[in-house]
Each structure stands twice: as structure tokens, then as C-alpha cells.
């Protein structure tokens, strides 16, 4: 039941600042990006209309396809690894005691610290000459891996650092989900002779599935937007092997001064995000339905 406003204009006045800011910095920019994507513009001279030229160039050079594949590869590695690790940690750490609380805090702290700090820290740990990881693996007699210099490895290195940063988030959400798993059921199952794996497989996991869907889709959408870690650790290199979507947009504007090209990329990026969000809703509905059905 809603209340009647004391004056008709009141609700509009209350919403005006919020809607103005959202329109100005969220909806209008979408339109501007769409409009600018049909121009060639270097920010200095007048924009020149080029029709679908920007889109055509992105497709013809194969850049767009490469970007999408690279960004998805990074995201999928990040999501599957952080999800698995976060779930395992949540199950292992879901108990009382100082030691467990300490491990929980340690893992989660990385989620709170800034991306820049994490990127710089790992840049130093992974330094090919003086870095701790190179020195330790040398000491152990392992073949050195050029974590950030090898174009075939670098994307996975970045994904690994991202996993280090965000696993705490997955863990915390799973821990919250685990609170809904009734202890009595688990104890009864244990009495009936169900081992730890069976208890997880048949009791815990079905209850956690909606949580897992949520964590997977949100981290997919977030990792699809990754930028800081690329900017600080690799600048998209070597030979563009770690240039993922948002970094490519940034590069077009601030390095190449091609605003039209960047706008076209922005439009495509938005459409992809929309697709991922659609996927998220669909999966969410499905898991909610299956929960009702069982």
C-alpha cells in the first residue's frame, strides 16, 4: 500500500536529482557512444562521418573476434577457478576456531585491497630476474617460466592473479549460503553412513546451487570488465596477447586518439554485457524454478 503524497510534485522532486545524475552519466553516454561510433574523430579536429566504417574495420581486421575470445578466455578461467577454490575453502573453513577465522580473513582481505596494490605486488613477485617466484623456482631446479613476457602464458598469469584477488568474495558468499544448510540433516546423513563426499554431493551442493549460479554470473560479468590489472601489469602486451576488451577501448581513446573506433568498441561491449546479464537472469530464473520444483 502506497501513501498519497502531500503535494503532487513531491515524489518528482525527490527523484529528480537521482534521475538527473543517472540519465546524464548512464543513459545519455550510451546514446553519445552510439552516435560517435559512426564518426572518425581524434578529439582535435572536427568529427567526420564514416557510416559503419568503424564497425567494419573492427571486423575486417579480426580485432573484434580476437578481443572477444581473449576476454572470454580470461573470464572463464577466472570464474571457474575462483568458484571451485572459493567453494572448497568455504566448506573447509565453515567452522569455529581462531585458526579458521584467520584463514578466512587472510583470503578475504585480498578482495578489499585495491587492484593497483595487488597488481604491483604480483608484478614484483613475478619479476623474471629478482622476483621471489623466479628465485624460488630456480632454487628448486624448475625451468623458469616467463609469466608476463610469454604471450602464451601471460593471460593465464593475469587470470591467476585475479583469482588470488577475488576468491575471497566467492568464499564469503558460499559461507553465507552454507548457513542455510541444516545441521540436523547433515548429522542424520552422517548417522546413516554417508561419507563427507556423499554429504556434500547430495545435501550441500543442491542447496548451494543457486548461490553458485549467482557467484558465477556476477564474477563473469565483473571479470569481463577487467582493466586495472592489465593496465598496471602488462599494458596489453606482449604483442597484444593480454589486450582484453576494456583495455582495448582505453587504448583507442588515450593512446591512438580514435574516439569513433573506441565508441564502436564501447557499443559492442555494452551489447555483450547485456547478453551476459540476460544469461544471468535466465540461469537465475531456472535455478529458482528448480528449487521450487524439488
Amino acid at each position: 500500500m502506497s501513501l498519497r503524497p502531500t503535494r503532487t510534485f513531491h515524489p518528482y522532486a525527490m527523484l529528480a536529482p537521482t534521475l538527473a545524475v543517472l540519465a546524464l552519466f548512464c543513459l545519455v553516454p550510451l546514446g553519445v557512444a552510439f552516435h560517435k561510433s559512426f564518426f572518425a574523430w581524434d578529439l582535435l579536429t572536427e568529427p567526420e562521418p564514416v557510416g559503419f566504417g568503424n564497425y567494419r574495420a573492427l571486423l575486417a581486421s579480426g580485432e573484434l573476434g580476437e578481443l572477444i575470445v581473449r576476454t572470454l578466455a580470461y573470464s572463464v578461467v577466472v570464474v571457474s577457478a575462483s568458484l571451485t577454490l572459493g567453494l572448497a575453502l568455504a566448506v573447509a573453513l565453515n567452522r569455529e576456531g581462531r585458526f579458521y577465522a584467520f584463514v578466512r580473513s587472510a583470503v578475504f582481505s585480498a578482495y578489499v585491497v585495491s587492484w593497483v596494490a595487488v597488481a604491483l605486488l604480483w608484478l614484483w613477485l613475478l619479476d623474471p630476474q629478482a622476483g621471489l617466484i623466479a628465485r624460488v623456482s630456480k632454487g628448486l631446479g624448475l625451468t623458469p617460466v616467463d609469466w608476463l613476457g610469454n604471450p602464451r602464458v601471460v593471460l593465464f598469469t593475469l587470470a591467476g592473479v585475479t583469482v588470488w584477488k577475488i576468491t575471497g568474495y566467492a568464499m564469503v558468499i558460499f559461507l553465507a549460503g552454507l548457513q542455510d544448510v541444516p545441521r540436523s540433516v547433515l548429522e542424520a546423513a552422517a548417522l546413516d553412513g554417508a561419507g563427507p563426499w556423499q554429504r556434500f554431493r547430495y545435501i550441500v551442493w543442491p542447496l548451494l546451487r543457486p548461490t553458485a549460479t549467482f557467484v558465477a554470473t556476477t564474477s563473469l560479468i565483473l571479470s569481463f570488465q577487467a582493466f586495472d590489472i592489465v593496465r598496471v601489469m602488462t599494458q596489453g602486451g606482449p604483442v597484444r596477447s593480454s589486450t582484453i576488451f576494456v583495455y582495448a577501448i582505453y587504448e583507442q581513446v588515450f593512446v591512438n586518439m580514435r574516439v569513433g573506433r573506441a565508441s564502436a568498441l564501447t557499443v559492442v561491449f555494452f551489447v555483450l554485457l547485456l547478453g551476459l546479464t540476460g544469461l544471468q537472469w535466465w540461469l537465475w530464473r531456472k535455478s529458482a524454478d528448480s528449487r521450487v520444483a524439488t
Binding site: L19, L22, V28, P29, I249, V259, T266, F269, L273
Partner: peptide, 24 residues
């Protein structure tokens, strides 16, 4: 309409808006 507008902006991150906002 107002509610839908607010919710629509949930799915538009700064990574989408920075180029146009910069030019604005």
C-alpha cells in the same frame, strides 16, 4: 518508469560510459 530507469543503470558500468563521458 522511474524504477525501471534506476534498475537499468545497474547493468551499465563505468567501463561502458567512460569514453562518452570523457568527450562530454
Amino acid at each position: 518508469v522511474a524504477f525501471v530507469l534506476v534498475m537499468a543503470c545497474l547493468i551499465i558500468p563505468p567501463q561502458v560510459t567512460f569514453v562518452p563521458v570523457f568527450t562530454m
